[in-house]
Design a protein around this nucleic acid. Structure first.
Length: 555
RNA sequence: GGCCCGGUGGUCAAGCGGCUAAGACACCGCCCUUUCACGGCGGUAACACGGGUUCGAUUCCCGUCCGGGUCACCA
């Protein structure tokens, strides 16, 4: 018999499911095109796991010529923070993953399957809820929180499974008159599913990542609509992903436990269930063990952390890709400049178990990513980072743009590019000697070089120095002064009898490097000196001589 | 605790009944080299354990142990 009276009392008027079906038709995409979605709750920031999911969503959609959209799941106001959507969207945008459909800006939506914000879809949920009530598949439950916890306590005591199900579901079979009466009395209620599940029965589901899953059928009369009329995640998921014609639900594997419920919901609503893809949880190492990356304890849980540290977004993406499909690295090696979207991603190749997030590996990937950039790209990346985290440094870079780009261009490109930068926040210390404002002229000689010898090298070299010299001429001059000062001009020769010399050309050029840059290691010194320019180099050479002389007196 | 899922070097991982058990990162050594970085070569290091099935198990089955997830009017 139809529970039409009850349904009408609960949800007067409104659209019918049939009307909604018409309003949100099939997308008419070609066979195999995946429709995916990223559906965060607006907690204000993009979690690393969220980025991982969004990247998977976007990649699958791109790969299959499908659609990727964003839906905001704001059904829990307790969770929500002010302006929470902005942080999420900014996060996505920073990684180039902001799609064209769904919530595309704060208060901005695009696409024909909206609204894409769950709080704006209440009537839609109610239309389906009403139908379920008519069919006797959903019912109002008047149990209070106290009632529920008493129930739970009793179940725990008698050692039976806790939950609202079977004979424990006391509101399940309330007489129609009582339902109506309590409704009219204004008693608060939740709407519950009258679960058709049978205890002990199993269902099997084909997960696109995990393969065949055997799970117990859902028997819980779960809440579909909360007291305030807002749907729970489960109900909203079924309605939305059906109406928005999602083909692949990609989400963290903490959801597999509720998979039986979701399958059941799609069933009672008469929807075809989407393909489920449960991704492994990203873990982190902590004193020998693994654990889920936590928002509270781990700064790297928020994707903004990587940006703060200066990891280029594309590096984070590349690293995540290697976690998604481990053959990504080989593919990248084969085509260093191929766009990410061209990678033949396969869900089935995704790992099943939780992977440790390895910062050392990310560092390596990041070095490669930065090394592949052009000087202009790396300048833009560095400046973008400095703009928000080191404005003074950014101002300097902006004022001397051409110079800074030239600096970043040293040893870049070619077969063996330098890979000494993994993060933009390392650049300032790595390159400080290029800027007088940052340069510290004081330096420490290596133990095996005496101050007197260092001074002699500088004295001999300074008058010879010509900023116009090419690399051969430049090195020839350094080699030239060696012999007269007791340094071997040839490293190989030196090695045959080290005791015969004070050192070798490498030591001589090392002293010059120290004098000019204050560091023992730099990119190609000749190029560095040419960029620095004659005047600056002479000054530093001069200053270094004084410094050495001072040391000798002190010693 | 119930229910799921998983267990190959320190990490990420190939592997799908027969292999000297790939590769990458990290680490160590050597080479190249005016420094460093890059690059090249080499090295240390793994199938959790116990039973089956099989001519043969890392691979299939069962148990143990370990790890993870989940049991809300949160998502």
């Amino acid at each position: 018999m139809c529970k039409c009276a009850l349904a009408e009392a609960l949800f007067p008027g409104g659209k019918t499911p049939e009307e909604l079906e018409l309003a949100y038709p099939e997308r008419g995409l070609p066979e195999g095109a995946a429709v995916t979605r990223f559906s965060p709750s607006p907690t204000g920031f993009l979690h690393l796991g969220g980025l991982f999911g969004a990247l998977t969503d976007a990649t699958l959609a791109q790969n299959t010529g499908g659609v990727f959209y964003v839906r905001v799941e704001d059904t829990d106001k307790k969770r929500e923070i002010a302006d929470g959507v902005r942080g999420l969207l900014d996060g996505l945008a920073a990684y180039g993953l902001l799609p064209e459909e769904g919530v595309v800006g704060v208060g901005r939506e695009a696409g024909k399957y909206g609204p894409y914000t769950q709080s704006k879809r209440i009537e839609i949920y109610h239309a389906y809820a009403k139908r379920l009530v008519e069919q006797g598949i959903a019912y109002p439950c008047f149990c209070t929180e106290e009632r529920l916890s008493a129930l739970r306590a009793e179940q725990e005591q008698t050692n039976v499974n806790t939950g609202y199900y079977g004979t424990w579901a006391c509101c399940r079979d309330l007489p129609a008159q009582e339902q109506l009466r309590r409704l009219q009395a204004g008693e608060p209620y939740t709407l519950r599913l009258r679960s058709p599940g049978v205890e002990g029965r199993k269902i099997t589901v084909q997960d696109q990542i995990k393969g065949k899953l055997e799970l117990p059928e859902n028997i819980m009369d779960v809440v579909l609509l909360k007291t305030n009329g807002v749907p729970t995640y489960h109900f909203a998921h079924a309605v939305d992903d059906h109406l928005m014609r999602t083909t692949h639900v990609i989400r963290g594997d903490e959801w597999v436990a509720s998979l039986p419920l979701h399958i059941q919901l799609f069933g009672v609503l008469g929807f075809r269930a989407p393909k489920y893809c449960h991704t492994p949880t990203l873990m982190k190492e902590e004193n020998g063990g693994k654990r889920k990356i936590s928002k509270r304890k781990d700064p790297e849980a928020a994707t903004s952390w990587f940006w703060e540290q200066g990891y280029p977004p594309e590096a984070v993406l590349e690293y995540l890709m290697t976690l998604m499909n481990s053959d990504f690295e080989a593919w990248r090696r084969a085509g260093p400049d191929a766009p990410l979207a061209a990678f033949p991603f396969r869900l089935q190749r995704m790992s099943v178990s939780g992977a440790l997030f390895d910062v050392a590996k990310l560092t390596d990937v990041s070095k490669n990513v930065i090394a592949r950039m052009s000087a202009a790209q790396s300048y833009a990346g560095l400046l973008g980072w400095a703009n928000t985290y080191d404005p003074a440094w950014a101002a300097l870079l902006t004022r001397e743009e051409a110079f800074a780009a030239a600096m970043l261009d040293i040893d870049r490109g070619g077969k063996k590019p330098r890979k000494d930068l993994a993060r933009w926040n390392e650049a300032k210390t790595a390159y400080q000697y290029f800027f007088d404002a940052l340069h510290d002229p004081a330096f420490q000689l290596p133990a095996h070089i005496a101050a007197a010898d260092a001074e002699a090298i500088l004295r001999a070299y300074a008058p010879l120095y010509d900023p116009e010299d090419d690399k051969d001429a430049w090195f020839g001059k350094i080699r030239g002064i060696c012999a007269g000062l007791g340094f071997c001009p040839d490293v190989k020769l030196f090695k045959t009898d080290p005791s015969a010399w004070k050192g070798h050309v490498g030591d001589a050029s090392g002293v010059i490097r120290l004098a000019v840059t204050g560091r023992e290691n730099t990119p190609d010194l000749c190029a560095v000196m040419r960029l620095l320019g004659g005047e600056r180099v002479r000054q530093r050479l001069q200053g270094a001589m004084l410094q050495m002389a001072g040391k000798e007196r002190g010693a």
